[in-house]
Amino acid sequence: MKIGVITFPGSLDDVDAARAVRYAGAEPVALWHADQDLHEVHAVIVPGGFSYGDYLRCGAIARFAPVMTSVLDAARGGMPVLGICNGFQILCEAGLLPGALVRNSRLHFVCRDQWLRVENTHTAWSSRYERSAELLVPLKSGEGGYVADRSILDELEGEGRVVFRYVGKNPNGSLRDIAGISSPNGRVVGMMPHPEHAIDALTGPTDDGLGMFYSVLDSLVAA
């Protein structure tokens, strides 16, 4: 299985996403922002970082990158896509996921180990978890507060599209403690915390994040 990891100028956690793919037993494929070709990958990860510096608004420029045109097309065709942190922001900017990410309520960048609760185990990226399982995963972002209209939030809740929720003190002011959401078909997931930094207790708080990468491989085999 080949999983593409996009690198924009300013991407930072692309090497980490690729490592997580490798740990899960799949082959990571580097995708360059200026290249429309997805090189026959079976799924795509849009990694964390500060794409193009994010001086305008997080993800606002990256959504126009040539590679994103192909990702959007592929996602509409059912390809699993995971946006982590800046990747989540980009997927929201691109309209693949609803809502937006705003500055943390305390206005500071926050880097901490964060407990998450798995709310939906029926997405392409969360099937390996037990429902209500709690994961300890790094969160590191300055603009991680998830916001959306009440009607959208109600829709997300109603359709079970809230995939992860923060447990304990809300770290960034996200509405309804939302840490990650999915598309209606569960193939596209965006989340602020970094599961790719929780794949080995040596370098992360736990290996709780690895389940996401196994999940997508399961979904690809099943498909």
Partner: peptide, 9 residues
């Protein structure tokens, strides 16, 4: 907590 200590893994 304002510094990223995880990046690059």
């Amino acid at each position: 907590e304002q510094y990223d200590r995880y990046v690059r893994g």
